[in-house]
Amino acid sequence: MASKGKEAAAVASKKDAATPSNPRGIPYAPFVDKVEDYVTSRADVEPTLRSFQEMIAKYQFMEQNLQKRVAGLKDKLPDIQKTLDTVRFLKLRTDESDPIETTFELNPTLYAKAEIPPTDEVYLWLGANVMLAYPIDEAETMLDSKHQAAKQSLSNCEEDLDFLREQITTMEVAVARVYNWDVVQKRKEKDEEEKSKGKGKGKEQDTPGG
């Protein structure tokens, strides 16, 4: 019984290895074309269902991680955009001679006035308590490339999430089909049992799909 279950799982994993994965190496879910390829007797049903559920759980685990990454990126992107906007604005002013008056946020709900002289140098916060002075052109290039990279990474994550959802749907359909197969099988067994006991009555209903 258990060995048959393992066989079924082995078939599943073999199919898994044969099917390609998506660009980020997430494997495709096996498609159950015929339920009989996976379960041959009712004893196989439980281990097969268990192995399918396990795969669903794995996909869901990846899904959760990606959702966190997407949330992080969606947080980061507007910040980069804001910094980039400011750098580009300051760049427009490098030829001026007068300082520009600004109202800037000192702290949430607290604004202060500052005069900013034309500048060709800005300081970028790199993280890990490090701030670095950049020529304004270089700062713009760097921020722009960071913005592009974050956007690309976000679109990859979203693509992966779509992919994962599809694999989960495929597996859920597979689970439903194995389950239905078991129900039909159970009805058949019951019918046969009753017939062999000689209690089968004429008005007994046909099993749909059986």
Binding site: K82, T83, D85, T86, F89, T102, T103, F104, E105
Partner: peptide, 10 residues
């Protein structure tokens, strides 16, 4: 005062 990024430039 025009908002660019987080600051208002006059």
């Amino acid at each position: 005062p025009y908002k660019v990024g987080d600051a208002f430039f006059h």
